[in-house]
């Protein structure tokens, strides 16, 4: 589903990164661990098509990301990649359900209200469907964040530090939710984090050094 080879990125002469080759198949979960400043977020941005590598290859669903032009990449990203950012950003003028519907619309996927509501139900926040984002707790926001990354049924879900602000119990719950959702839509799930608690939860791991 997602495969990289000889991936390198250089901000300047002093800040250059080389990443190990990785692959994650449909329905699999891959944990990418590393300390702060090791290039985790850079790797996530490269995998998400938000930055272009200086060297190497990124293939998602047999498509080479590096070769795509800007507008094609925008479209490809929308259709095939779901990203869960560390900070919970939403369209504040829309309610929870509208945020999910907009995500489907922008991704070019079928606008499926029933699926959005089902996803919210799976995440146990269906009662917040009509709530404004500002009225949600941080935990609820994180679940909506997850829902938004999966409602357009991408091939790959990338999660950036999804558990860093959570206690142990909620940490395990969120990972389980991510796993469930990814499996539900048949996506490869990559979690990029420095949170070593996940070592014991996720089997397939790569440590950046």
């Amino acid at each position: 589903m997602i495969r990289t080879a000889e991936l390198q990125f250089r901000y300047d002469k002093e800040n250059a990164f080389s990443f190990p080759d990785l692959s994650c198949a449909k329905g699999e979960m891959l944990l990418i661990l590393g300390k702060s400043g090791i290039g985790k977020s850079t790797l996530l941005n490269l995998l998400g098509g938000l930055m272009k590598p200086n060297h190497g290859s990124i293939q998602i669903n047999e498509t080479e990301l590096v070769n795509l032009g800007t507008s094609t990449l925008d479209r490809f990203r929308g259709e095939n990649i779901g990203i869960i950012f560390q900070k919970n950003h939403f369209i504040e003028s829309l309610n929870v359900l509208e945020n999910l519907l907009l995500s489907q619309k922008l991704a070019g996927a079928k606008v499926d209200k029933a699926f959005c509501l089902k996803t919210l139900e799976t995440l146990n926040i269906q009662h917040k469907a009509k709530s404004k984002i500002r009225n949600l707790s941080e935990g609820e926001k994180q679940r909506v964040n997850i829902a938004r990354a999966v409602v357009h049924k991408p091939k790959v879900v990338l999660a950036d530090e999804p558990t860093s602000a959570l206690d142990d119990e909620n940490c395990a719950k969120v990972v389980e939710l991510l796993r469930t959702q990814a499996q539900e839509i048949g996506a490869a799930l990559l979690i990029v984090t420095h949170d070593t608690r996940l070592k014991n939860i996720v089997e397939k791991q790569i440590v950046l050094s």
Binding site: D74, R75, G78, H89, F90, I91, L102, L106, A107, G108
Partner: peptide, 15 residues
Amino acid sequence: RKYELALMRVSGASP
């Protein structure tokens, strides 16, 4: 709303 706009781009919106 700069984060919102960036999010929209991530979700597939064109410039």
